[in-house]
Structure formats: C-alpha cells, structure tokens
C-alpha cells in the first residue's frame, strides 16, 4: 500500500475563514469566537483514497498583512495550495490574485491549486458571482469549491479534492516533490526540518507592503 505525504499551504485574506475551514475538517468543530491566527498553525490529517493513504501536512497561515513576509516559508516546497476567499467580501476575492501571482513567480514545482469560496451560508450577501469565481479558478488551473465551515457544507470535498489532486500529480509529472512511501508505517516519518529555508533573522524582515506585487525575489530550490 502506498502512502503519499503532501505539504498543503492555506492562503488568503484575513478573516475569510482559513482556520475555521481547516479546523472544521481536521477536528469537525467550529467556533464563532476564534481569534486571528498568530503566525501559522500546523495541522496534519490522513485520508484514504482508493487504497492510497494521503497524509496532509497543513500549514494554516495568518492572513494579516504583517505576517506576509513569512508566507514563502510555508509555500516553498508545498505540493498544494488552498486559496480561500469570502464570497461576501469582494476585496478578499481580488486579493487572491496577489497570492496566485506570488505562487506562480516563486514556486517552480507543479502544485495542486484549489480556490475555495467560504461562507456559502451567507449566500444572500454574496459579492462574488459563482461563475466568475469558477472562471477565475479555471484560468489559473485551479479547481473551485464553495463551502461553509460554519454549517459544515462542502469542506470535506475540498480536502478530498486536494488529496486526489496530489495522487494525480504523482502520476502525471516527474518533477513533483511529493514524498512517497510504500509501507503503511509512516508515523515515524516527520517532515524534514530543512523544508523551511534558513534566513538571517538578526536583520529585520523586509516585507512586501502591497498585495499586488511579489514579496520575495528568492528562487525556490528544489527539495530532495
């Protein structure tokens, strides 16, 4: 039996429900009064799809502008990216483009992209047309899902889709950096810490202050 370990990064504007979506999936719970994520949170979960175990290592990043400089640390070497927006907030949809642009510029290896419109329970306040979102997702080679973390609608499908995407990635391309193991016993396999690239922290972090441009000019080294 095959096991795939994939690194997933969750990106998006602040307050769109990145953490809520991940927690709904991983712990099946929801809290109205969740505080903003500090830095980034790490989750992991396992899915079984057609005899293949897919282990997702999920980096749920903070949406606040001040943490933007950290993002490359998490999307570098990622195998999949969930880009989340809030269907009731036009601005969050538009700021997605910044993330997509940044990913395209900085990540060389193929990646599963998934656009997620959250808060579908508030569809009556919708500011982003479903067709428009689908079209946008298509244009960047991503799948599109709408979900409601609050009402637990469609969240499972998102992650299922990511896992299937990873399996396809494994079959289709040769330059992916997915880790594949043939045994089931992978509990002792932790992601290598070198996945995060060291930089000089004694100096101040230079951060991109605009959503619409590239944050880091570093090229991404291919891993293992």
């Amino acid at each position: 039996m095959k096991t795939i370990v994939g690194k997933v990064v969750v990106l998006g504007h602040q307050g769109v429900g990145k953490t809520s979506t991940v927690i709904r999936y991983v712990e099946n719970s929801f809290s109205q009064h969740i505080t903003p994520t500090v830095g980034a949170s790490f989750f992991s979960c396992k899915l079984l799809i057609d005899d293949i175990t897919v282990k997702l290592q999920i980096w749920d990043t903070a949406g606040q502008e001040r943490f933007k400089a950290m993002a490359p640390m998490f999307y570098r070497n990622a195998n999949a990216a969930l880009i989340v927006f809030d269907i009731t907030l036009r601005q969050s949809f538009e700021s997605m483009q910044g993330w997509v642009f940044e990913l395209k510029q900085n990540v060389d290896n193929p990646m599963v992209l998934c656009v997620v419109g959250n808060k579908s329970d508030l569809a009556k306040n919708r500011q982003v047309n479903r067709d428009e979102a689908i079209q946008y997702a298509k244009s960047i080679g991503a799948t599109y899902h709408e979900c409601s973390a609050m009402h637990d609608q469609g969240v499972g499908l998102v992650f299922d889709d990511v896992a299937r995407g990873l399996i396809r990635l494994l079959g289709n391309s040769s330059d992916h950096n997915l880790k594949v193991y043939d045994s089931e016993n992978i509990d002792n396999i932790m992601a290598n810490s070198s996945e995060l690239e060291a930089t000089d922290t004694g100096k101040e972090e230079t951060v991109n202050l605009s959503i619409n441009s590239i944050a880091h000019g570093n090229t991404v080294k291919k891993c293992c």
Partner: peptide
C-alpha cells in the same frame, strides 16, 4: 487560537 494547534510565529 493558539489552543487549537501548534503555531509558529515571529
């Protein structure tokens, strides 16, 4: 939010 998972923050 720190209670929900391990976090990594500057």
């Amino acid at each position: 939010s720190l209670k929900t998972a391990e976090s990594w923050t500057p």
